[in-house]
């Protein structure tokens, strides 16, 4: 079958991440399903990228697109799946969502300019994945203040409940600190992420811990998670993720 001619408007390139040169591009759907994901090699690194329409991904139209939840989810899933497939084969430096270049030349220039730091980062990430650890605690009991028989009793109940909440939040902070310290000991690095609200986590329990770790030895890390699990908390492991949280910031600087 003859290759379809590429429309002129599809001059943009969407960059998912960077791998070592020579790696095969993953066989997953691109953010624009009309185009395939390819590996554009420049020196010793290669950008995993696919063509996109600049009408869809240009600065002027992106904010509007990003407000479209269905579009956003579809593209974010495609972005993530390309990176997960790449990660299954070898180390990958993940890019931010919607890293788009106006043409192939600009993308290749980025790769050539940053080849050294990209290569070093790939070496550092080789054989490592990002694993997420979340901890959930049962929600606080509903207030009993409304059942108080007098104004004084009401205020007293409120005061006690406030004190209990403060103690709970102090003890949760201490647990989180301890958990993070113990997990770091079994990882090459770790960060604390924002706690997710109940709407976001889809749970009825409060999220009290949300960390992410760069892990070489998964069995050892999982054992550390099991050993460190505090009483009364439910732990959840996620991943392996492309190491989004362990990419040096200097890559982004012009």
């Amino acid at each position: 079958m003859a290759a379809m001619p590429v429309p002129e408007s599809d001059a943009g390139w969407y960059l998912y991440g960077v791998v070592a040169a020579g790696a095969a591009p993953p066989d997953t759907a691109a953010v624009d399903p009309r185009h395939a994901v390819v590996a554009l090699a420049e020196e010793r690194v290669a950008g995993l990228a696919s063509r996109v329409s600049l009408a869809e991904f240009d600065e002027a139209t992106l904010p509007e697109r990003l407000a479209d939840a269905a579009w956003l989810e579809e593209k974010i899933r495609a972005h993530e799946q390309v990176l997960e497939a790449a990660l299954a084969a070898a180390a990958v430096v993940p890019c931010r969502f919607c890293t788009v270049y106006r043409d192939e030349h600009e993308l290749r220039r980025f790769l050539a300019d940053r080849a050294d730091v990209l290569e070093l980062t790939l070496e550092r990430l080789e054989g490592r994945v990002e694993l997420g650890v979340k901890a959930f605690a049962p929600g606080a009991a509903p207030s009993e203040a409304a059942e108080a028989e007098s104004g004084r009793a009401y205020l007293e109940t409120r005061r006690r409940e406030k004190q209990a909440r403060e103690e709970l939040s102090r003890s949760r902070a201490a647990i989180a600190h301890d958990l993070h310290r113990r997990l770091l000991a079994a990882a090459d690095g770790g960060v604390l992420l924002d706690l997710q609200s109940r709407e976001l986590s889809g749970r009825t329990a409060d999220m009290v811990f949300n960390g992410s770790y760069l892990v070489a030895d998964r069995a050892r890390f999982e054992q550390a998670v099991a050993d460190a699990a505090p009483d009364g908390l439910e732990l959840e492991l996620t991943g392996p993720w492309p190491p989004y949280n362990f990419v040096p910031e200097e890559l982004g600087r012009p």
């Binding site: 943009g12 960059l15 960077v18 991904f57 240009d58 600065e59 992106l62 904010p63 990003l66 974010i76 972005h79 993530e80 430096v93 993940p94 890019c95 931010r96 969502f97 919607c98 890293t99 788009v100 270049y101 106006r102 600009e106 993308l107 980025f110 990002e130 960060v191 992420l193 924002d194 997710q196 992410s212 993720w241 492309p242 190491p243 989004y244 949280n245 362990f246 990419v247 040096p248 910031e249 890559l251 982004g252 012009p254």
Partner: peptide, 16 residues
């Protein structure tokens, strides 16, 4: 939380 909020380093020449 990973793709949008964190680990977002490499910038293309189209800025959002």
């Amino acid at each position: 939380e990973r793709v949008l909020d964190k680990g977002i380093v490499i910038a293309g020449d189209i800025k959002i």
